[in-house]
Design a protein around this nucleic acid. Structure first.
Lengths: 346, 346
DNA sequence: ATCGGTCGTTCAATCGTTTGACCGACAGTA
DNA sequence: TACTGTCGGTCAAACGATTGAACGACCGAT
């Protein structure tokens, strides 16, 4: 039998106060554990009982109005379908929850000017702070600034003078990947890089070049191609690498800047009749669940994406809005060995 | 040069009213486009100018307090990493935005009792309504009920007496898949089903049986195995299908209840030395971007997941809380032909 | 000249919490 | 006895927007 819910007349502080025969101020202070409150244990119990029997829940709107805090954080990502952001969200959400905050995650992919819409909607006191993952423009930085909200970038290093960001150790990840290939005996190692706009791509490319240089190997321009971080882009980029190779031979291994592109790379290689890892070894950045089930299972570099998201929330909440915050999360950046890498033939 | 932001003293209605030399009531009514407001165009312009020059933004907390509406909707999913939910979120978010609402998406995977935490956090007037995708318990239904919020289930049909849900036409999707296999000439068609708890799994299994029956084929119990909608579960289920087959021969085709499990199924087949589609054809439900890049590219049945999410939001916002709402979204449920299905050998 | 009816606008109560200020009672001290 | 503190609370003013009610001015009709 269902209890028919009459339009419940919300139970408020005064209801509780009446039942406990105290002033509502007491109730409020009990709830918020005001350290300045001195009160008999007996009274406190009466209040707590009253709260319980009435099933009282503080009204968030009223509280927000009074305290000028929303208890909510915003996270703007490009696209929910991208598993990299799924990981970041997961970490951020959990950290926010632990600090009693709710996380509003919005994607900009939906509409043409998704970011604007979100800045509009969230910049009215709806959130206490904003986390931006993914690309942003200078104009958006302007707008953000004018909202007067604390905000920072996640997995992106902004180009302006707003030095607040958390990123991963992309260069190190790239180095791990390339050194793995080197240690297997590869000398001719190609790179499917990310888009020019993404600074993560720059750092991974830099790590790749660095590792190659350290090994005393010159990188041929023809062995580096650029994709847009999607599997389609990866497929294309690998295609152009193979095309370039017609005259000068094929790399025996490829370091791919992210897993999504690696999926396309595997595709292209298969269609070209090249076996992985027998003919070409492939290693990519980001150890997403998917990697394990590709054909062949993909060797990757695990990045602490969840920690990244979590750390971003922590920093956003703990640091003063005007304070500079630049942090690199580098825990547990490590190679995950699977079946897509092997020594080169001969 | 950055404008240094002094701690901005929020600009409020009265500031605007003063500048426009009208009462704040006017400003409020102008903003909310109160149809009952009769006002000279000149005055209206003055107000609008004032709003613009001051950069006024209404304070959400105050508005929520007064109107008892949050302008926010909640969506609770099991896990962000599951691309099925990514699609639902995307659709829901876009629909919410179109209606001037913000969507708070929370996952229950984070902590042991994630659902409870969310019901706690969101059930304080933070959201105007709640969408539940994924499994829920009777106890949670109880709690939900006690929050006095409108809520409904998405892609799940609740078992209780709360008849508010939007689902997809799972039986039809299954039929499309199986009929495709039948038309290729397969007679022995296995099924990797979803978990008993999920009613989507039940409907897909029912559709499978229905289609088989219509074709006059008896389904052997050994040809149906159950997985938990993850790729690991799919791999296992396919394993047991192969084990069962030792005595009675292998199915020439498998209908898999979702893409995640199909990934595992392909894995198991590959390890068993069976080629897809030469030895076994595979077709799965849900046409996620991933499907295109599996090896081989997977034939699927596309389901309108985004529409599902969008429709859920629409219904939640438009229907009275006590009204029953049961809808099946079935637009664009169609077969997507790729390379994982082919006629059986001989 | 008076009345009624729009038009254009103002008044003020209200939503539910938080929080600084204030206050009475009682105990201990000088 | 008067004074000073602590204890255990109460009072009331915010926070910023919404909205029903009221109000003065003006116009046309009687």
């Amino acid at each position: 039998m269902t209890t028919r819910r009459a339009a419940t007349p919300r139970v408020t502080l005064v209801d509780v106060a009446k039942l406990a025969t105290v002033d509502k101020a007491i109730v409020s202070r009990v709830i918020n554990e005001d350290p300045a409150l001195v009160i008999r244990q007996e009274t406190r119990d009466r209040v707590i009982d009253a709260i319980r029997t009435l099933g009282y829940r503080p009204n968030i709107a009223a509280r927000s109005l009074r305290t000028a805090k929303a208890g909510t954080l915003g996270l703007v990502i490009p696209d929910f379908a991208n598993p990299v952001y799924a990981e970041i969200i997961t970490g951020a959400e959990s950290a926010a929850l632990d600090r009693g905050h709710v996380l509003v995650t919005g994607s900009t992919s939906g509409s043409r000017n998704g970011m604007d819409r979100y800045l509009e909607l969230l910049g009215q006191g709806r959130v206490d702070g904003l986390l931006l993952a993914g690309p942003t423009s200078a104009r958006e930085h302007q707008k953000l600034q004018s909202l007067g909200l604390p905000w920072m970038m996640v997995n992106r290093r902004d180009t302006g003078d707003h030095h607040r960001y958390v990123i991963l150790d992309d260069a190190h990840a790239a180095k791990l990947a390339v050194e793995h290939l080197l240690s297997l005996g590869h000398r001719r190692i190609g790179h499917v890089a990310g888009p020019t706009g993404a600074d993560t791509a720059k750092r991974r490319a830099a790590g790749y070049r660095q590792a190659m240089k350290t090994a005393g190997i010159t990188v041929r321009p023809a062995d580096v191609a650029r994709g847009d971080y999607t599997s389609g882009g990866g497929a294309e980029a690998m295609g152009s690498l193979l095309a370039n190779a017609e005259k000068s031979g094929t790399p025996t291994a490829v370091f791919v800047a992210n897993v999504a592109m690696a999926v396309g790379v595997l595709d292209t290689l298969r269609r070209a009749g090249l076996r992985v890892p027998a003919d070409v070894s492939v290693v990519a950045v980001h150890d997403l669940p998917l990697a394990e089930h590709l054909n062949p299972p993909l060797t990757t570099v695990r990045m602490p994406l969840q920690q990244l998201g979590g750390r971003a929330v922590e920093l956003l909440l703990s640091r003063a809005p005007e304070e500079q915050v630049t942090e690199v999360v580098s825990t547990a950046t490590e190679l995950v060995l699977r079946e897509s890498t092997a020594p080169p033939r001969i």
